[in-house]
Design a protein around this nucleic acid. Structure first.
Lengths: 354, 354
DNA sequence: AAGGTCTCTGGAAACGTTTCCAGTCACACC
DNA sequence: GGTGTGACTGGAAACGTTTCCAGAGACCTT
């Protein structure tokens, strides 16, 4: 059935020499007479020979492979991370093994375990919860070169991440500038993403600091199809909110749609700010105000860090410059509706915004 | 530096038995006394032992790994394909190795070559051009279980694809029903995607059949950032067109944005129909009329087919039911503007379009 | 002509598994 | 007490590489 692929031994037999010689010729290392070289090359060509990476890896204990764990590809942010990581790895002669955790701790751990068993040379990952990830523990304990992406720094592991706290504060400032006081924080699987939690925390703190009301937490635990309905229900329940900060752009756009379906005008009746800066936000009308991040740079950087650690000699590129995001203005942010500005008495108390 | 991971031999030494015994215990096959079993388990646990998949694969000549080649993850269609394929593979205990061809033949071939060297057990792929893909030739010649995705059937390889011709005809029909006569076909990297070419061909034929003018080919060869500008230029050049069929939704949405920037109202001044049915099309206002496909089903199906061929016993699930798409109505399709219905006199003279 | 160098070559070990096979041991049966 | 029957065990081969090392010539030098 399976037509066994030719091995180096087959080539050697056909060329009438030893396997050591074939290896030398085909890898262009070590001496070989012009005559043998030619015969080996011919034999390899005739047989359509390709090295078996397994044997090779086993002996060299290097697989030229990097593992990549992300929550999901449905979010364009991670698709971008993966794509960029892929390119960067490829350029260095490495392959990417992909695993999606589906925001599930169980799957995340088993994915990392499998990757470890496959002896990837390095690993980049966005884990559900950096603080208590079993998989990360495994990585640490056997010292595999790795880098986090979008997660906060933890256990001394390098990470390519956005400063969620600072970004959330910037959002609060944007709302405050327009005069909003009652805002909400919208999250999808709140308990399954430490990014979301950090953004919420930072946002709540910044709201307090700038004299706004504490943000209402609008949480949805995904149950697929009816996302828009759930959003609609949530929105009508909280009509008094004048602005909503969504923990990612995808959610912000969905909320925008749901609000429109409810007859709300944006930004006249409700302001929206997203997070991530995916390109779809620029296509909708009005454009989505958001925190713009650079997922491609994150993916690329993480791979560079890992590659540097693998090769050892180069100094690991430094992961975290001061600013990893910028606020992108958009038509979804405007002043709150006049009727709901009445609780303005507290408006002057805004002051400190780091 | 690298803290060599424990091998089965280490476990054997610590448990005071032979490696064969360890293998038997840990794999739960073959006999073992309760006593040894316990000692082995303890030793493995102490050492944090995990099997090395390389040695295992080398000996069993099965890597439990499936290769996956797609043009890009930037298109949500492929992100969905990959994600679904991943889930399906995982469920069967297989891992996915991802490679993106970036719509480049060179990269595509080398990706397949590498995957082959890594001895994947099977492969699913969307290739740039099914007809003349070098990589596909390689696959064929060594009989690796594989399935195409979104490509047309070729060399007897199973494929999970949309009937591009029929779908394009459906689009033509939709335009014709509304009374459009002068339409365009918009494509991004026309020469790099046989899907795009097939859609164009089918569309041109259907236009002819239904008495519309031959569609104008609006082609863009991507040069990143200025996509919207290029689209804008293209649109103003062809003001006489009342409808545009975009070869994918992403492009359709970009065109929608570009048209709006030009002051065109949709669908009053220009109708748009896309292809793929990505979810973003349902978020924009008006909703995008499009051909809805099911990328997840394609990815899942392709993996099932490959898995079936690997295990041999099951009969390969049949890839291609009659209808793999449906037309999704949307607000971007309306009747053509009254003023531009006048060139109707030429309606009968249409004839040859190769 | 003996010794030295230099280039080329192939055998063999090693990488970490699985599995075949032969060996050991305890036990029951005649 | 011998013998057969099991259950259990470990040595060794095999999977496909790379690389060390020693051997075989060819050629030059004295």
């Amino acid at each position: 059935m399976k037509p066994r692929l030719p091995t180096i031994k087959d080539v050697a037999d056909r060329a009438g020499c030893g396997i050591a010689t074939v290896s030398r010729v085909l890898n262009q290392k070590g001496p070989a007479s012009a005559d043998t070289r030619e015969k080996v090359l011919a034999a390899a060509n005739d047989l359509g020979f390709e090295f078996n990476a397994l044997g090779r890896s086993l002996q060299s204990s290097s697989t030229k492979t990097i593992g990549c764990v992300v929550p999901s590809l449905a979010n364009p942010v991670f698709a971008d991370v993966v794509q960029a990581a892929q390119q960067e790895a490829n350029a260095a002669g490495y392959q990417l093994i992909l695993a999606c955790s589906e925001y599930d701790d169980e799957l995340e751990t088993s994915a990392i375990r499998t990757l470890l068993a496959k002896r990837v040379d390095g690993l980049i990952a966005t884990v559900n919860s950096a603080e208590n990830s079993l998989g990360l523990g495994l990585l640490r304990s056997n010292g595999l070169p790795c880098s986090l992406v979008y997660n906060r720094k933890v256990m001394g592991l390098p990470t390519w991440a956005v400063d969620n706290g600072a970004a959330a504060a910037r959002v609060a400032q944007a709302f405050a500038c327009e005069g909003h006081r009652n805002t909400g924080f919208l999250a999808l699987r709140f308990n399954r993403s430490d990014r979301s939690r950090e953004r919420h925390q930072g946002y709540a703190k910044a709201c307090r600091d700038s004299g706004m009301a504490p943000p209402v937490l609008l949480e949805i635990e995904e149950q697929d199809g009816n996302l828009l309905e759930l959003l609609g229900a949530l929105l009508s329940e909280h009509r008094f909110l004048t602005g909503i900060f969504a923990s990612n752009d995808f959610l912000a756009l969905a909320a925008m749609k749901a609000a429109r379906d409810l007859g709300l005008r944006i930004p006249d009746d409700l302001s929206l700010i997203g997070f991530d800066g995916i390109s779809t936000g620029l296509i909708v009308d009005p454009n989505l105000a958001t925190i713009e991040t650079d997922p491609r740079a994150m993916g690329r950087g993480a791979v560079q860090t890992v590659l540097a650690e693998i090769s050892g000699d180069e100094k690991p590129a430094q992961p975290d410059p001061a600013q990893t995001f910028r606020f992108r203005p958009g038509g979804t942010l405007g002043p709150p509706p006049a009727g709901r500005m009445d609780d303005r008495e507290a408006a002057t108390s805004l002051s400190s915004t780091a």
